[in-house]
Design a protein around this nucleic acid. Structure first.
Lengths: 353, 353
DNA sequence: TTGTATGCGTTATCAA
DNA sequence: TTGATAACGCATACAA
């Protein structure tokens, strides 16, 4: 198949018998153009189906009207919503989104980031994997290109903007709910402490225990990564222990998959034999029997806010960096209804009312 | 934050005391360069952290080494795998992927497509929404830019390449399995006949019935769209009918969500009160209690193949278009174990062995 | 109000 | 083997 050659501004100029600069002025809405000329140019432009060459324009102006979006794991359904939110805002503002996926491989993270910079995107939203190596790439790039980071810790003096989710709050509510129901052996399975969402979940977990004057059992806190496989292993280990938990908080929606596998393999009934809470509002939570309680957040909004922050930086390059936190809240469903009678429990701290 | 200015080829030339053309030759691996010069250029280039300006290069060479990926609904988990497959191949070949999402809105489909073409991507993989309007945009573009289409019908004389999934085969196996179990009132819920995956599923459904000498009941065939909401409505209507189905095939993984909602709302137990089969290997199918049988395909492979096809077209622009079909197969799980005793059924055709 | 000329950073042609 | 220069398509400073 032979490709049609696109027409250029020179051809439009020839056809309308004016100079190229006049064509450029008409098409870019310059104020000082005569009505007569505008018409001629517009006619010729339409006749030739002229479409400005964005590459040439970018070379000249230095901007691409394209932003990069580095997503750490597109398999994670919450990313879909974040991407949608970010894309909506970008397109509404005339920006294209160049999305690349590193799928958990932090080496790819770095490679993709440089790829985006090479492609001369105007800015990048970074939502990396659950590894720590990202910091390296960020340091190297933050003075090269405007950056917005999603839910990751930043050095205090960073010039990078950020959007956070307040995981601690929602997890604290979830933990309190379980403590209220008499649970004193609550397990938390989540990612490494170096990873912001994981660490924040831990903080909420600890905070709720503290408010209840209950000492959390260290052996029930499993910090690893957010992958299903870790969920499966951690849950299995917990359930096989001498003193297994009566409730599990799965701190990550991917990881929940592994936790459920582990529970099912042992024939444990969610909500009857053990209480379960997860994170993020995925189909699985709502449709599972019984439905699974979860700490949810407005992920679409997170994407929107991230893009708004980035576009703002592009408009005002000198403005200081900014960070915005999105709330989370606990949605109670049947999976966490199980109540524990606290009286027969021995050797555990009692609630102080 | 002040952005660092990237160094140019002119600066490298000055520093290494050679001409810009020589720098260009060294950096692009031209054979006729002296060892001495190569070293000087490389040293200067490294010292200045020189990174060729891809925009300028694209303007000169006419290629961007970027391919567009138009995805119709990023919320659909099967897209994640397809995207991964395509990205893997692209990156391995030095291409970046510019992904845009239209999320079910076919007007956006068209807009995004032109956006990609404006951005001068070298080619586009199109996986549009379940509407029909896509044909318009494709017609308009297929002689402007190399295109590969995923699982959509194309006009017979099209110059566009395609990757298909053999939905018919897998759905036929699933249908046969249900017929074997004695089901004579099997419902199919899927998208419109204009949509290839939906139509192919219907064909497989009909083919299996035919082979079994069973006449499918027209009132049990629901062709609408692939959204959860349609699944919910269609299932509800079926279940409230005078003669409800004993088995349901949910022809689409998003739509399954609605079907399950409808079943749960009526307290119907999957696998006990009604047999259920779905499509695609999503978490929900495997983890549901009971696990849900499904017609699966290698979606990662589909993405790979699509990108390979596109890159091949870019290398050999004159080669004829090509289409490749990926197989599907039926994975039997507990949700479809329910057996129907065919003797008490009256007024229905009997199997002919 | 319009046209001329220059440059964005490369690659490629041609001559030396 | 190397260097000067044109060209890719456009936007803009400046001149008219």
């Amino acid at each position: 198949m032979v490709q049609k050659r696109a027409s250029t501004i020179v051809e439009v100029a020839r056809r309308s018998r004016v100079s190229v600069s006049s064509v450029s002025r008409v098409l870019s809405g310059h104020p000082d153009v005569s009505q007569r000329m505008r018409e001629r140019v517009l006619k010729a432009s339409a006749a030739l189906e002229y479409d400005p060459h964005s590459i040439a324009r970018s070379l000249r102006t230095g901007v691409t009207h394209t932003v990069g979006f580095l997503v750490g794991g597109i398999s994670n359904p919450v990313f879909a919503e974040i991407i949608k939110g970010a894309s909506d805002v970008a397109h509404a503002n005339g920006y294209a989104v160049m999305m690349t996926n590193s799928e958990g491989d932090s080496a790819i993270d770095a490679a993709q980031l440089t790829l985006l910079v090479q492609r001369r995107v105007d800015g990048v939203i970074v939502s990396t994997t659950d590894e720590e190596s990202e910091i390296f790439a960020l340091d190297r790039l933050e003075d090269r290109i405007p950056l917005v980071v999603l839910d990751r810790y930043l050095p205090p003096d960073s010039s990078v903007s950020a959007v956070y989710a307040d995981h601690a709050h929602g997890v604290a509510d979830a933990t309190t709910h379980l403590l209220d129901n008499g649970h004193r052996a609550i397990a938390l399975i989540t990612g490494s402490r170096a990873l912001r969402p994981a660490n924040e979940r831990l903080l909420g977990f600890l905070r709720a225990h503290e408010a209840f004057r209950v000492t959390p059992r260290p052996d029930l806190i499993c910090m690893g990564n957010l992958q299903p496989e870790f969920g499966r292993k951690a849950a299995s280990k917990l359930l096989e222990a001498a003193s297994p938990p009566t409730a599990i908080i799965a701190g990550g929606n991917r990881l929940l998959v592994g936790v459920l596998e582990s529970l099912q393999a042992r024939g444990l009934r969610v909500g009857d034999d053990i209480a379960l809470v997860s994170c993020d509002d995925v189909d699985l939570n709502r449709l599972y029997i019984p439905p699974i309680s979860a700490v949810v957040r407005d992920t679409h909004r997170m994407g929107q806010v991230a893009m708004e922050l980035l576009l703002k930086t592009l408009r005002e390059p000198t403005a200081p960096s900014q960070s915005i936190t999105i709330p989370t809240h606990f949605v109670q469903r049947r999976s966490s209804e199980l109540k524990i009678d606290i009286r027969p429990q021995r050797g555990l701290a009692q609630p102080q009312i």
